[in-house]
Design a protein around this nucleic acid. Structure first.
Lengths: 378, 378
DNA sequence: GTCACTTCCTTCGATTTCGAAGATAGGCCG
DNA sequence: CGGCCTATCTTCGAAATCGAAGGAAGTGAC
């Protein structure tokens, strides 16, 4: 039995609409929930009495009486979220509206295996809770991003590369043993997509490409994260057109990841005798206009763009957002845009926006918050 | 003002659940609609009194009392649906459960332009109605499939190839002037996808590839047709890997359609001195094990399969159904399967089914019925 | 300023929906 | 064939929801 919020029926819907920022007033709630204004008023009254919602001043008029702005009460609870990388973990606490209270980054070797890593994260959560949250404010949910595929039905990690010891590990069960709360376990690119979606409120269909050490992608369909059977959004092992023949770690020749990922670019730079240690170094070189780096970024962008042409024609999104550490390299995005614009159907590129991600480096944590809210405020 | 069914509120939901075949009894309705069993009984009573629903014997027991089977009353209404091809049109009447009452095929040149063609269809509808439906049974909706892209917001045809005079033509408005009813205008591959989805009740995410004269594709996400901005599902103008360089009608080199469509295969066969006039001839040749034809079908299947690898990794469907006239060529599907299995991620192909379409040649008409019901029973 | 108009929110009686309990109708089994 | 089980469907009082009407608090035109 999970410790649920004391909400029932329509209350959860209303709370979620406020928490996700879609509604700010009773009138918004009435419009978005489909309930009658009178019913909304009643439920909001109850939620305020229960200490979950709070009234906070008034909003701006739209030509009539000003709305009384609603927000989640700070005492309603917090969420603990983490985003696991290969050599570090970003983690933090959010309030129930998804606003960060504290976020920090710690060293952490994913190769140490799931037990050690997850306990490390949980210990960090406990520290943060003790330091930043009064004991009266309850923890309402725990979520983590994983740099590998997650089976959505069992919440286990499946066939991850570069994560020794994690295959088939029941991450959610392990966390549930420590926290009797809603638990979220999700692929990191998917979390990033869920977070990024909040910055594109008018768009219902998005692709979020994460260009970092590897290449990931998350898909938002109709405003909801598309998981498929757990691997949805993978674009890194698509075959690209190429003269040479490079064999990827997955065993197939000419994967996109083997040509256009941060890891591949670093290897290529080192071969040219340029020393780099992190993907951020590539961006620095590009912004310093070092010809080798710029040329590599352009080629990588074109390759990514060529893969995206297929997906843009097929999926027809409103927005392609490019995030990850490499997205700060301007020529990369420009080349992606050029490739898509050149090859896609006019109908598919009409009104299509290809832009840098807006969510920043905490997008994945915020996305974890968004998805956890869905679960915690059911 | 559209002539709506006399249903309001929850009645529409219930009626739709019965019409689409998802529910057969009051108990089914209660489970699927989320309403209480008592409320379902009340609404069903009203729908029966209104002459829209009818009780028809009893179903099979699941261990207890047998359910009293519900179906749409035959007098509740009919739908008129058409699927427009280049040189012919398939059209027919369906009852409100989507069951065909009569279906026929007529000659019809799409190049004659929208006015002539649509009036031809409407006249055919009137004939069929007069011949097969008593005047007391009302027409509840009209829908048609178009062999080109349809803008979902305006229901106009946009930038079609091989459809002179149709660009930007407001098909829905034209039909609405003749029928004061819900009107559906949709791309033919999308209709086929909507129809095919009924044959895969357990699957929520499907791709339906239509391999005929051209190559089309429809996408079902979460049980609903995905339209994107109107061009979603297009795979025919994806660039394929190839030695030669063929320029497609769209102006780009090496489009899938220029290599693997029925039109391309026919051209290749003619070059080998084999006479063919229709895509069905190709299937005949393949099934007669003519080496040139079999080899061509295999190559086409591999090319289609290579494109599908990208999309299967990305979209992670439960099912890829292959329809259209070419799908009867066994080597084509086998080659598609082989290509996808070889190159896709194990997680994406685990439990993936690649199979011939189950809907048959009327799939598009039945799909039009399904989508029209959503509109007519709102 | 004041008058018309808009939007936001609440009040209150009518309607709809719920849910627990019971009635109905079958299967299964000794 | 007669309990005992299960699932389906109905009845009826309790609870939630709705919608029309109206008060509250603004904007904008004159």
């Amino acid at each position: 039995m999970k410790q649920r919020l004391p909400v029932q029926g329509a209350q959860g819907d209303l709370l979620r609409l406020v928490a996700t920022g879609r509604a700010e007033s009773r009138a918004d709630l009435a419009r978005l929930s489909g309930l009658a204004a009178s019913s909304v008023s009643l439920r909001v009254e109850e939620l305020i009495d229960a200490g979950l919602l709070a009234e906070e001043g008034s909003g701006t008029s739209r030509g009539g009486r000003r709305p009384r702005r609603l927000r989640l009460s700070p005492g309603a609870g917090v969420l603990a979220v983490a985003d696991l990388g290969a050599h570090h973990v970003r983690l933090g606490l959010l309030d129930l509206s998804g606003t960060p209270l504290v976020i920090e980054e710690r060293g952490c070797e994913i190769a140490d295996g799931p037990q050690v890593t997850l306990d490390h994260i949980a210990d960090a959560f406990d520290e943060l809770l003790a330091a930043h949250v009064p004991p009266s404010v309850p923890l309402r949910g725990v979520g983590t991003g994983i740099p590998g595929p997650v089976d959505p039905s069992s919440l286990r990690v499946v066939t991850p590369s570069r994560m020794p010891g994690w295959n088939e590990f029941p991450v959610a069960d392990h966390l549930a043993a420590r926290y009797d709360l809603p638990i979220l376990v999700e692929n990191d690119a998917n979390l990033m997509a869920a977070g990024e979606a909040r910055w594109w409120p008018g768009s219902q269909n998005l692709m979020i490409v994460k260009a970092g050490t590897g290449i990931g992608c998350g898909v938002i369909v109709n405003g909801h994260l598309h998981r498929g059977r757990g691997a949805a959004g993978d674009i890194s092992h698509v075959r690209v057109r190429s003269d040479s023949s490079v064999v990827c770690a997955c065993g197939h020749p000419d994967c996109l990841e083997a040509y256009a990922s941060g890891a591949a670019l670093m290897a290529a730079l080192r071969e040219s005798g340029i020393e780099v240690t992190r993907t951020a170094d590539i961006v620095t070189l590009v912004n310093d206009a070092i010809p080798e780096a710029t040329s590599l970024a352009r080629t990588a962008g074109r390759r990514i763009g060529e893969v995206l042409t297929v997906l843009v024609n097929f999926f027809n999104p409103d927005v392609v957002a490019v995030g990850g550490s490499l997205s700060a390299a301007e020529p990369l995005i420009t080349s992606i845009r050029a490739a898509v614009w050149e090859r896609c159907l006019p109908l598919a590129t009409r009104d299509l926006e290809i832009a840098p991600a807006r969510g920043g480096r905490d997008a994945a944590l915020l996305g974890a918050g968004t998805l956890l809210l869905e679960a915690a405020l059911a």
